[in-house]
Amino acid sequence: MSHRSFLLLCLVPLASFALAFLAIPLVRLVLASGEGAEGWAIYLTILRTPRYLATLGQTLLVSLAVTAAALAVSTTAGLFLARSRFAGRRVLLSILTLPLAFPGVVVGFMIILLGGRQGLVNQLLPGHWVFAYSVTGLFLGYLYFSIPRVLLTVMAAAEKIDPALEEAARTLGAPPWRVMVDVVLPALAPALIAAGAIAFATAMGAFGTAFTLATDIDVLPMVIYTEFTLSANIAMASALSVVLGLVTWALLLLARSLSGGTVAAGG
């Protein structure tokens, strides 16, 4: 067997799997979205129905807010941890990466423990402090699982910055804050874009957290879920899935073309 055919053979299992369980199902999903009563006009219906539009807007808004907050928190903490050496540094780092593999449901439960009816904040503070079941809870939940992801990306990038760059800026007379603005942040920019895109994509598609916090928050994944299971409106669930998938994917592509690196989401 020639090397060429051996390489092709190596790709066959993966390609078959991707065809059967990814390509054809996705095509089926797109087709299903047009099989409802309105046909392909269903996408116009989404644009004309205030509830769907509001949901899409709210999902985008929460995701953007989470992205901004996660970038701010994780860049600050990540740079701090990457550049300082002190006892307990490793412990802090471990704590900050711990939620990396928590599924959305567990994150939701964490937020309930903090801000639920029987949550810590409500018990410690006087008055009524329940925020877990609102958009605030959702925001905190998304932030909870975004912090570790962004932090790891930022720290990896921070460790690759040549210290001589900063030293050169210092010898040229730049004060620390200018070094940060002129040298460090530009060097981190690709990593920040990549990490931001990951946080955004994860927040857009997060279902487990919203599902656990549930009740009265309208975000796209929850609406898709209710359309599918409660209303049995398969066409609408499919159409909304297509929209959600396209928006998320397009944003990741954009982020990648900006950062020049590989951007992937998870969770």
């Binding site: 898709i224 989401a265 998870g266």
Partner: peptide
């Protein structure tokens, strides 16, 4: 990694 699990 990009398309939400729910859609898949």
């Amino acid at each position: 990694l990009a398309v939400p699990g729910l859609a898949l």
